[in-house]
Design a protein around this nucleic acid. Structure first.
Lengths: 342, 342
DNA sequence: CTACGTCATGGTAGCGCTACCAGTTATCGC
DNA sequence: GCGATAACTGGTAGCGCTACCATGACGTAG
């Protein structure tokens, strides 16, 4: 008894349909699609026109099953709304949109456990590559990454001992440069204001501390932090706290630009002169920092470029030529602006 | 000749391994995992423990191939960095993170053609649901959505004639409310400043225009727009242009909060009193608008909630009980603040 | 006591594709 | 001119899972 052409498939053309129409074997169609160089000019053309006529598109699920490899990049970030990670994701996306690879997103919510869980879910899918934010994976996550059997790129930070590859920059050096700039500009009672305090923020704080200690200016009371998620509103509140604690405060290095903006607005509201009375430095250099009044000094980071580079490295590794430089430091740039021009 | 256990599989346990260990048929394991109610208490327990011992996780690719349905939500947004869409995606993500569904992201870059291309790519994957931003799909995209064979939710806007379901609000009404508020507050030469001018911005403009015309205040020279992507920097520039064109300008309704912030900063820089000389209204009500100095009136929109609701509706439809209300309007709220308190 | 539904379970046959290997035909060196 | 090598092509056998149907056990109605 002959079954209907396809019980479940919904009537989409399959590779067999293309093969029949082109008068070749199914495997040749498969090859023509994936490695055109290994199929003769003649057949390639025939197959191509059959594909076009039928509107054939390979089923990625079948492909993944047969080849034990899905054309998917797994991307794990701690937040989707934080502009910094959104830009990284955009860089990843833009670099991938030409090729066959899809993106599967995971939001770890800054939680190591959630990261573990997501890696466990990603594993059985056999992704073509994994891109994860940060370098502070739990031991279990690290093992999952090592045994994933695909290229892995840790992004946003550099550090020793990459799982596989890394693209980022040193948050410690960024924080240090920011604090040094404030010191050079003549500020003395320079506070650190930070929210969320994820590992990257911690390292910025460490850089700030190193610079302050080197200048003999460090004072633990100058540091105001909270694990609460960052926001402009929170920046204002933390700044108020800091000022209440240390009225002699004459500068602040903010964990990020949202906090810096909150500080700036509070200065306006309280008629505190910037940069005269208080100097402000942010981190990441969002678009708005240059436009703000006064414009705000910030540490420019190359988030979009990090995403692009991560994909480039992963793609190279997939092709078999793993870059000799496994850890890429894209650096940062301190943008000096009015908020510290005393 | 006996082959090695698995040529390609990499040695992960399969459903057959679990079945063997539990002493049942493979299909029963499959059922125990997907519809536990259809398997007896006894076997269920045995299977469960076999799964745990082996650390079995079903292969989503094989599952998708066999059932002709992938546990994937396709999500198409015009931008990843625009906070508005990032929040929608976050809402979608948070609502999906419990269940089996993965998220596959597509960035249309505000292009209808790119949207078409992405839908074509998504199709063969047989996603469980599609969530797309906007209601202005090209005819080809619309057809792809209609024939996708899965629930479709259009988000961010409401309108007549949904492909399937819709969650959003009326940008026309939002724009109208913003303009009416400025008029009530006593402003007369109220400009519209807009960047990008995607369909949603166009409708906000239309709402503004309707309000202005109703009050006999409309003047085409009051409208300043550009197709250039929105940014705080651009907000400043457009405001300068607007002011050069119409020096008597006494209020602006901005397409979005980034533009509004640029306007606010430029007012500071040029010593233009807000709200006295110029009233400012933004759109979306980002966190920072409340903290800004002066705080900025804005139209609050419920992006996160839109994402959550879209998933809830899609999930219900997958379960077979399509909500009777196919178009959900989540509305908006005009947040009156200092920037229009004349 | 038979007929028939219901429930729990399993066997079989694919889903659409690619890895592996075998076969066929040109091309080439000696 | 012959075997050898390379270049191309195809058949077969799965990948790991689930749809479909079959089976048997049990209960219930007639």
């Amino acid at each position: 008894m002959i079954k209907p052409r396809s019980r479940r498939g919904g009537g989409r053309p399959t590779i067999a349909d293309v093969a029949r129409k082109a008068g070749v074997g199914a495997i040749t169609v498969s090859r023509a699609l994936r490695e055109p160089g290994r199929v003769s000019e003649d057949l390639r053309r025939q197959i191509e026109s059959a594909v076009n006529e039928l509107g054939y598109m390979p089923d990625p699920n079948a492909r993944a099953l047969a080849s034990a490899r899905a054309e998917v990049f797994g991307v794990l970030v701690p937040s989707l709304t934080n502009n910094v990670f959104a830009e990284v994701v955009r860089g990843i996306y833009d670099s991938l949109s030409d090729g066959p690879f899809r993106i599967q997103l995971g939001n770890t919510h800054y939680s190591g456990l959630e990261e573990e869980r997501l890696l466990q879910v990603f594993g059985p899918q056999r992704p073509a590559a994994l891109i994860v934010a940060g370098i502070d994976q739990t031991p279990a996550s690290r093992k999952l990454l090592e045994t994933a059997g695909c290229p892995v790129v840790q992004v946003m930070e550099t550090g020793p001992d990459p799982v596989d590859m890394m693209v980022g920059f040193s948050h410690f050096e960024g924080g240090k440069a920011a604090a040094e700039h404030l010191i050079e500009a003549g500020y003395r009672r320079i506070g650190f204001i930070g929210a969320r305090m994820d590992p990257r923020s911690q390292r910025r704080l460490a850089g700030y501390r190193a610079a302050m200690e080197a200048a003999g200016l460090f004072d633990p009371r100058l540091t105001t932090t909270t694990p609460v998620p960052s926001s402009v509103t929170l920046g204002r509140e933390l700044f108020r706290d800091a000022l209440a604690k240390v009225p002699s405060l004459d500068g602040v290095f903010c964990n990020n630009d949202d906090i810096a903006l909150g500080v700036l607005f509070e200065c306006h509201r309280a008629s505190i002169a910037v940069p005269k009375t208080i100097g402000i430095v942010g981190f990441n250099d969002l678009d708005m920092m240059e436009v703000a009044f006064p414009s705000v000094t910030s540490v420019r980071t190359y988030r979009y470029e990090i995403g692009r580079r991560a994909v480039a490295m992963a793609l190279a590794a997939i092709e078999g030529n793993r870059p000799e430089q496994r850890v890429v430091d894209l650096g940062f740039e301190l943008k000096r602006r009015e908020s510290t021009a005393r």
